[in-house]
Amino acid sequence: MEDLLAYIISRYNYWAAIILLLIGLYGMIAKNNLLKKVIGMTIFQAAIILFYVSIGDKRGATIPILAHGHDGAHQAVEAAAYANPLPHVLMLTAIVVGVSTLGVALAILQKIYRVHGTIEEDEILETIDQ
């Protein structure tokens, strides 16, 4: 039992990210409502962000801002004491990209609604076939 628990705890961050990712991907592919596809897209991107951020974690480490005095005095840095800064930097970029894509997708969606009068995919396809 304890082995199982240890096994789950050791990697459940990845599992959580993967499950979220699959939910998002399913939404993007299978949903008929275009807005739900967009929601799936944000879940999908959030899952990847979670995945990356969990890479940056180190057990027992604090945020990567060095302790420093006002006079600029500075001691040698113990790298193990601070979390990995790189995934945070990368994900700041990915978040920005996600927001941008979301904005553009919503704008296009508004236009689709104006042109077709609906955001249900099957109804849009019917109007195209006519």
Partner: peptide
């Protein structure tokens, strides 16, 4: 014509593609 709908499909596919790439890089 239906450029908006076609573009929307492209956004969804393009985002899946780019995100899978990003995940692979991860």
């Amino acid at each position: 014509g239906f450029a908006y709908y076609a573009t929307f499909k492209y956004i969804i596919m393009g985002t899946i593609g780019a995100s899978l790439y990003l995940l692979g890089v991860g």
